[in-house]
Design a protein around this nucleic acid. Structure first.
Lengths: 167, 167
DNA sequence: AAATTTAAGTCAGTGATGTTGACATATCTC
DNA sequence: GAGATATGTCAACATCACTGACTTAAATTT
């Protein structure tokens, strides 16, 4: 048990009494609603949240290999293969053997897959735009900085590169 | 398919070409890491993310009823009961019949449950504090505004009340 | 007092997403 | 040719969510 937990449990005054519950909860609610809208659109095609992530990152980095995708999503080969199979079967994603290394399966979206990926991104973008609309100019930059800083230290640079170096 | 998707698919210039992919992705990565640390602490006791949510909101609103908790979490009675049973069996949560309405089961944390809830909140708070530390003063307020605005319109006021009207 | 509604608990079945560990195959590298 | 690497696949399992139907007990309405 942490020092903070002990202190609180005994009712002592403690620095950690100043926990920002509001931000913790808002992050939870905001994320819940951020993914719920795409979820409904995906359900239309029998897809789920996992399919969304694959569509999104293949859209952003066409020609991605399986290994790269696994590293981004931080899931296992098994989990990925299940959803990837669905997407390939329904002609949203295509595989091509790599030029240099023919063991690699490079992933691309078909026009159908790209249309879906963009539709979902547009939904999420609209929500973000709407949220930023009521805030001072330059807020987007600050929110980007905040979210970047929320990422685990060892991962942060990788994420920054991925996010900045768009397709 | 949306107008945006069609436009993008055909390569035409379009307002939605300016989708903020960075913010979409950062929100995903930030949330992933925001919950991963508590997840590891919970696994120690054989609990999962669902247990965390119950602990958190019972901690914040002691005496909460089942119906209120269901409304906050937006899950079904079945899903809640499973994790609630675990928490009660392991003496993290207690139930008391309501004073006014004895059908209600009002939920409270035991000292053990409170210690865990505070430990988890402290982990998340530390991450948030760390992220805000590098940003201009007043950033916390702006981030709170942003996250609030990200919540679904019909739910936003309810969330605001919950978040502001702490225990 | 009887009928209805409400709060909660429970049963059975299902689906999506994640995990582990082991093993197969093709291809590249040394 | 040997070994490493990229991917695919099999079996088994855990968590967390869902639906629909039903029960119990207490409150409310008529």
């Amino acid at each position: 048990m942490s020092k903070a937990a002990l202190a609180m449990g005994h009712g002592g005054r403690d620095e950690d009494a100043a926990i920002d519950f509001a931000l913790i909860e808002l992050f939870f609610f905001a994320y819940r609603d951020f993914v719920s809208e795409p979820d409904r659109a995906l359900a239309r095609d029998g897809f789920g949240r996992a399919h969304h992530r694959v569509l999104h990152f293949v859209n952003r980095r066409p020609g991605l290999t399986i290994a790269e995708l696994l590293d981004i999503l931080k899931i296992t080969k098994q989990s990925l293969n299940r959803v990837l199979k669905d997407l390939i079967d329904q002609a949203h994603v295509e595989q091509k053997a790599g030029d240099m290394d023919r063991r690699q399966r490079r992933l691309f979206l078909t026009p159908k897959g790209a249309a879906l990926a963009v539709e979902l991104a547009a939904l999420q973008n609209r929500r973000i735009e709407g949220a930023l609309a009521g805030l001072p100019a330059g807020s987007a930059h600050l929110v980007r900085q905040f979210l970047t800083a929320m990422v685990d230290d060892p991962e942060r640079d990788k994420v920054r590169r991925l996010v900045e170096g768009g397709a």
